[in-house]
């Protein structure tokens, strides 16, 4: 029964041309309306909230989660999950610091090594999931511990600091008045959105999520695509790790712990079904922004951090209930 529901709901994923009403009723549309309402409400409660400075500053803080959430959308659309992103993030941060300071590589090269490490870590996830047939949840749960352990082992609980000034540009600098990492996120979002929405590869991910066996029999290279998306996930975790190190000017092995949950929350809030088969990059990015603005706005109106966490939980549940409701209506 579930399968049927999923299959039925997946087709109207991208709004058909001319369907403004359709878009407003989609998860992304509802989320956008909710977001705008929320921003206006919060803006009346604090005059510091809706300012260019604050919004750009929030952009700086959400870039890492955003970058990790993009490939997470792909993976969840195929019905998989990647719990190891936070650990890959930490491992990459440590590799960056140590290949530079201990091994003595030039910092530019160390950044490249870091990104390769991230991609490799993701590839290992993919290989075990595809070739050995370990369920993604189990495999990435194992590497969640394994990669974090590696990070701790390499760093021996020491942090690496003292990076040169130019290195902080990515995390703290601006380009044309906008934080540099926001440009990276914007570009990555655009590319990821186009690939998912308009290429054979992208559409095949929906097919895999809806019915993997059918996708295989249709001649889609399911295994190769899965390897690609898990590797992509590792790579983006590496990019996010690099940006984070640049932002906070130090390297620690516990960086990025819990990042996987933030990313998954944003993806699910953005309307991607955790069972696979539906979702969009647009929804994910709205989800990322919504959570960050909600956190920030509540903090600015004087709500404490623990209460904010509760509010975000409530919003998440409400969004998911609403999504299910819409999907049901559509399926009928």
């Amino acid at each position: 029964m579930f399968m049927a529901e999923q299959a039925a709901s997946s087709r109207p994923n991208t709004p058909p041309p001319g369907g403004l009403r359709q878009f407003l009723l989609s998860q992304e549309g509802v989320l956008l309306l909710l977001g705008v309402a929320m921003v206006l409400l919060l803006a009346t409660r604090s005059d510091k909230f809706l300012t260019v400075d604050n919004l750009l500053n929030q952009g700086r803080l959400l870039a890492e989660i955003g970058l990790v959430a993009l490939p997470m959308t792909y993976i969840i659309i195929t019905g998989g999950i990647d719990l190891s992103v936070g650990s890959i993030f930490g491992l990459c941060a440590v590799v960056l610091g140590f290949s530079w300071q201990v091994v003595g590589l030039p910092l530019e090269l160390a950044i490249v090594v870091t990104l390769i490490t991230g991609a490799l870590a993701g590839l290992v996830n993919g290989l075990f999931i595809v070739r050995v047939g370990v369920p993604p949840l189990i495999m990435t749960l194992a590497t969640l511990a394994f990669y974090r352990g590696l990070a701790q082992g390499i760093s021996e609980a020491r942090s690496v600091t003292g990076y040169p000034e130019w290195f902080f540009g990515m995390g703290q600098g601006d380009f044309l008045g906008v934080p540099q990492q926001l440009w990276v996120l914007a570009l990555a979002t655009l590319v990821a959105g186009i690939i998912l929405g308009l290429t054979t590869f992208g559409r095949a991910l929906y097919a895999i999520g809806n019915n993997e066996t059918a996708a295989r029999f249709s001649g889609l290279p399911v295994d190769r695509y899965k390897l690609l998306i898990y590797t992509f996930s590792g790579l983006m975790s590496g990019v996010a790790g690099y940006i984070f190190v640049s932002r906070v000017t130090t390297t620690r092995s516990d960086m990025g712990s819990g990042l996987e949950l933030d990313a998954i929350a944003a993806v699910v809030l953005g309307g991607t079904s955790i069972l696979g088969g539906s979702g969009s990059i647009l929804g994910t990015i709205i989800g990322v922004i919504l959570i960050q603005l909600l956190k920030n706005g509540l903090a600015l109106t004087g709500v404490t951090t623990d209460a904010t966490t509760v509010v975000i939980g409530v919003v998440l549940i409400a969004a998911i209930l609403f999504n299910t409701f819409i999907q049901r209506r559509r399926a009928q």
């Binding site: 803080l61 920030n296 903090a299």
Partner: peptide
Amino acid sequence: NIDDQIAVIDSYITQG
């Protein structure tokens, strides 16, 4: 968590 702590301080700077 270092990241969360930074975000908290950040919003208090904005808040004034």
